[in-house]
Amino acid sequence: EALDFVPMPGFSTDEEKTPFEDVTRYNNFYEFGTGKGDPAKYADEMTVDPWSVVVEGECDRPGAYALEDLLKPHEYQERVYRLRCVEAWSMVIPWIGIPLVDILKRLEPTSRAKYVYFETLYDPDQMRGQRSLFSTIDWPYQEGLRMDEAMNELSFLAVGLYGKTMPNQNGAPIRLVVPWKYGFKSIKSIVKIRFQEERPKTTWEMLAPQEYGFYANVNPEVDHPRWSQKRERRLPSGLLSPNYMETVKFNGYGEQVADLYKGMDLSKFY
């Protein structure tokens, strides 16, 4: 379904976009399997309409919101962001959505809200990856941001891409996009938003804390323990001419976000 939106050139890269086919057929969405093609194959088993999002914790407007009510007052924007996966590949994707800050402000977080926690749908009937006996993930998928990160102008709640409603495999009906962090921070198919005082534990951090930190900022200077983060393969990448490029700190968004981490040792807070 086509969406109405305002293009935001100031928030968009003019790098070549990853084609729609690749963006929608090459996904990490372990709820539907660990293969890159699994989400495209099986995400149709998830029902995304109706959808509601529970808001709770340190805010003045908690409650269960029908997705439409959460989105209604806002105008959609298009932002072309780089997406850098922790696995060392990257894409350029035109997202349609709403700045996260606009929605969070409406929910009126209290002064005690230091972090925002997000949760993906948990429904093994619809998500075959959650039925896997061998998965070491403790579902549901959980993520979080520090309040100032969430309020940063780049943080985005996407409801579509390439001008159309979000395909299920990309995290329909609503997902987070945090372009200066590794892709796993950009949680998909959100059903819960909670404001809280303590830092939330995140799924990958719980699974392998020495490999995946809470911050997960894109950073070529801090390698993943099992592979280098210095370079990335920008997709699509060819066999004869692999599309390698140097990875840039904060995925190239340092100007907007470097201040958030002033004085922090990013090799310790990875």
């Binding site: 990853t18 084609p19 690749d22 057929r25 090459y26 890159k36 093609g37 590949w89 894409m91 393969r233 997709l235 699509p236 990448s237 060819g238 066999l239 692999p242």
Partner: peptide, 15 residues
């Protein structure tokens, strides 16, 4: 698969 270019956007990894 290489001939029919059906390896997806990251063929090097696939191969």
């Amino acid at each position: 698969s290489i001939a029919s270019q059906s390896l997806g956007p990251d063929p090097g990894q696939e191969v």
